[in-house]
Computed example of a mutant assay.
Amino acid sequence: MNLVELAARSTPPSPSTAVLRTRARRPAAQDVAGTSLRRSARQVVDALAGSSGLETWYLGRVDGETLLPLAVSTGSRSVTTGRRVRWSDTPCRRMASGLGPTVAPVVADVPNYARAPFSLALGVTAYAGLPLHDRDGRLLGVLAGWSTRPAPVVTPGLEPVLRAFSELLTQALDAEVRDDEAQRATEREAVRRRAADKVTSLSSRTGWGAVLREEDRRCAERGLPVALLVVDVGLVRSSARLQRATQAIVRALPDALVSRLNARQFGAVLPDVEPDEVAATAEEVATALRSEGFTASTAWATSGEAGDLGAVWLLAEQRLYSARRDGVRP
């Protein structure tokens, strides 16, 4: 049984939901490949596009200030899988903040939606959407659809079906996050064995590059937010002091993959974090190092700020050099 059938069964039987069950479209053959989340999401968005009265649907992952579409309904031209959208421009941001209803058959009647730059640019006439939250209540993404046709007719009873789909997609996303955590643990150990720095026993710059490639793949496939933190410990004159700095960083970053990038600089991959969490983490690392007598500087950048993690790393290093030049502490 696929996700579309499960969602249909999870909603109370009624004439309105029966329409959505019987008119679900099969996903295109070329989209079968990919993660289970993407396959499930593609089934959902295509089913909704063919049944709801709204011709465009997508599942998007919120990544800091951007929204990354993970699956988009067939034939959509206004939004593309993998092409980021500014989160603040969307009616979805207003919906997720509780500033409008789940279903807006006439967008002009909901000023918060109608005035969103995304709505104005596309000429959105009707909208529906729901947020996806993890078990801790954090916003992961949105399932949303809209129409640009004049006076579209939105299928009655859409909201309960949309809620069922959102719940199932959230479960699929949580499952992939747990799988990613297990994969990262395996990769960390493999990287340490293959490319360990002899003094610190951390991953070396070579290992760091391998980790970024894997994280970049996850970012592209699943939309999981990633931050890169770079740390400068200043001039270190002995192996003992370098090991002490290493221990302070690793203790402050128990869940991160830490690498030694050069004589005085370390890098850390922080997966599935929000920008405000990265800022607090950077401060904790800097405080831990300064308590040990090191002249610490930190800087960071997130996956939502650049096209790939190589560019994110470059941005973080540029910020670090600027902070060192200007004597700025986090």
Rank of each mutant, 00 (worst) to 15 (best):
L68Y: 12
G64K: 01
T200K: 08
P150Y: 03
S88Y: 09
R237V: 14
R194C: 11
V177K: 10
L3T: 06
P131Y: 02
A240P: 03
A96D: 09
S147D: 03
A116L: 13
P101S: 11
L212Y: 09
S78A: 04
D89R: 11
W300T: 00
T148N: 01
S52A: 04
D180Q: 11
P15W: 14
G267F: 02
L289R: 04
G327L: 07
G157W: 00
S297K: 00
V62I: 08
T22G: 11
V328D: 09
H133R: 13
R213F: 09
L120M: 15
R260D: 03
E277A: 03
G98H: 02
E221T: 12
G209H: 10
A301N: 05
Q183S: 08
R251W: 08
A24L: 01
G209I: 02
E181V: 07
L242D: 01
S97W: 10
V153Y: 08
S16V: 14
L70Q: 01
R94Q: 14
A116V: 05
L68Q: 05
L122M: 02
G307P: 01
V110M: 06
R38M: 00
A108M: 06
A128Y: 04
S14D: 12
F266Y: 11
R178W: 13
T170W: 09
A28V: 06
G141T: 06
R138S: 08
V44W: 02
T17H: 04
R38S: 10
T66K: 08
A8E: 10
D46S: 00
R329P: 03
R324M: 11
A164C: 10
V199W: 07
R23Y: 06
P160L: 06
E65R: 13
T298N: 04
G60R: 07
T287H: 10
R93C: 12
E283H: 05
V269C: 07
D63S: 05
W313Q: 08
R324K: 10
V285W: 07
